[in-house]
Design a protein around this nucleic acid. Structure first.
Lengths: 120, 120
DNA sequence: TTGACATTTGTTCAATTGCTCAAATATAAT
DNA sequence: ATTATATTTGAGCAATTGAACAAATGTCAA
């Protein structure tokens, strides 16, 4: 095979300059892009999906979530921390238990839209 | 610190059995869970988000996408393959160029819902 | 206090992922 | 055929991530 040095960066002459410029101008802000990718990342994990779904039905303690999903309490707690950091769930402590519930109406809508998509 | 063997699995007696059972019964199917996590995974990457956004505005060739995002053609092509596999984009060849466009109305809606969420 | 239960947290490890580079393929022009 | 342009693909690598396990914290009851 011949050796070719490839620039791998789009040559100016081969680019439709005005088209590229126009779209660059209306491109999403870094803030939007990061927000979107963070949001979708949280929803991109099977365990978290199940947790969110369960909590969308009812407030539950960590132990019950673990029971419902059939995974360890530790694993649930780790995932709940992620959801907490993203402010998707809120919690209240009652004696030894900690009860979690959904804390973001938007997420429910995103979730439902996603379900509609996969079930279409 | 005391050594305790911890089962890390919810003790039956501490679980609200009927509550757990009820939610287990209406839990999402594996199919739904996998579909959701795959769908959200595709949307969870900044590069793919930008590509999807750009393509939502206009049909574009690989080279122009690379130019708009300011990343290598190879990187774009790799990501486009993922979007192709998920059937989120379609393409048509014209001479040496390959033009991509969005091929899923649902994704646009999911995307917009996501934007609404992060901008709230 | 001691012990049991509920949850959280830190560490380690394996798997996944996105990128780069090099190479291959495809198409058209010389 | 050779060259140039456009895109795809495969390998290798660094960074991220989810799960498992151990240990720590917190709360209540005996």
């Amino acid at each position: 095979m011949r050796i070719k040095k490839q620039k791998d960066i789009c040559e100016v002459k081969s680019v439709d300059k005005s088209r590229v410029k126009a779209i660059k101008k209306i491109m999403l802000s870094d803030r939007d892009v990061n927000g979107l990718s963070e949001t979708f990342s949280v929803l991109a994990d099977p365990t978290r999906i199940k947790i969110i779904y369960a909590l969308s039905k009812e407030e539950l303690c960590v132990c019950n979530v673990a029971s419902i999903l059939g995974i360890s309490i530790s694993a649930v707690s780790h995932q709940l921390r992620i959801l907490r950091n993203m402010r998707l769930v809120k919690f209240r402590k009652e004696a030894k238990r900690v009860y979690y519930s959904l804390d973001d109406r938007h997420i429910n809508r995103l979730f439902d839209q996603g379900l509609k998509h996969v079930r279409e």
